[in-house]
Amino acid sequence: MMGLGFDGRVFEDNFLIADIRAKADFPIERRFWFDPAFNPGQTALMHRQPDDVWRLDFQLGWDIDRKAELNDDKVRARVRGMIGEGIDFNLVWTSIYTFRCCTMDEYVHGPVIFAGDSAHQVSPFGARGCNGGIQDADNLAWKLDLVCKGAAPKSLIDSYHLERKEAGLENIKNSSRSADFLTPRSPAHALFRDAVLDLVEQQPFARPMVNSGRLSSPCFYAQGRLFGEDALDGPLRSAPGSPAPDCPVGDDFLLGILKSNAFMLLSIGLELPHNVDISGAILPAIVLPAKDDLLRKRYLGDNPQAIYLIRPDQHVAARWAEFDPQDVARALKQSTGRVS
């Protein structure tokens, strides 16, 4: 309709999903096989789903007869090969999938904004598709809200493209690397993949190189346009641009406490009222004692106290060692695109 391109790589491989329902005491963690006897030369995957359902995933290769592979008897034989004799199972769902890794150039085209799979697609390894889509929505919702209310200029929406394209490319990079490990594209790629797999049993150093998917984590935005100052000699992982790290706080968790549909202040080790007037705007403030170990480690480092400005999508916008409403007002202005 808009004639927009979608560039990237198609991976020449097919994967069969067979969801089975079975009473089984398989280990609960996600298990991945390279070149197992039941699927020679290919990979396989098993992980648990709700209601006694187990997802089995078999790599099939590129030149396959899809119809023949989806034949119930053939699928059953594959499942039996994987789980062995003596476990009853029902096939719940079967499907063959392929994947590609690609992204649009621009995610914002005037009033049309692209998110999730319409903006970027990745391999399923790492759970980056759905997570990336939800993070897109998280990023866009508060910006749209402010723009629609007239509290921020329309140009704030451009930052959605900058930030989420950065995240999209990061997801594609990680997802493509996993796919390259699973589906080597050349004899040299296969040589090194097999060398890693040969080494892992005896050599601990090789184990982190096994790449069956790097689990999705939110992007640490390096596109600094919306992020304010870092006036705290604090930990890198909670610097402006970072997704606020979670940690236990008393009987709760920090991200559960930082729920807000507006910008908020997080004050650690420093008394603040629960609502702070910042140039006429009222910001909610969460005030926590500098007590919990992980909270100190992730947000304070060696500092006795800190003030964080947190965006509605729980990314850190700015941070300081001391509270000064003027500093916060300046950062808030920058974070909502009200700076020319």
């Binding site: 040589l191 090194f192 060398a195 890693v196 040969d198 080494l199």
Partner: peptide, 10 residues
């Protein structure tokens, strides 16, 4: 070739 690849990684 396989030995060389392992050697490179080590």
């Amino acid at each position: 070739h396989a030995l060389n690849a392992r050697l490179v990684l080590i």
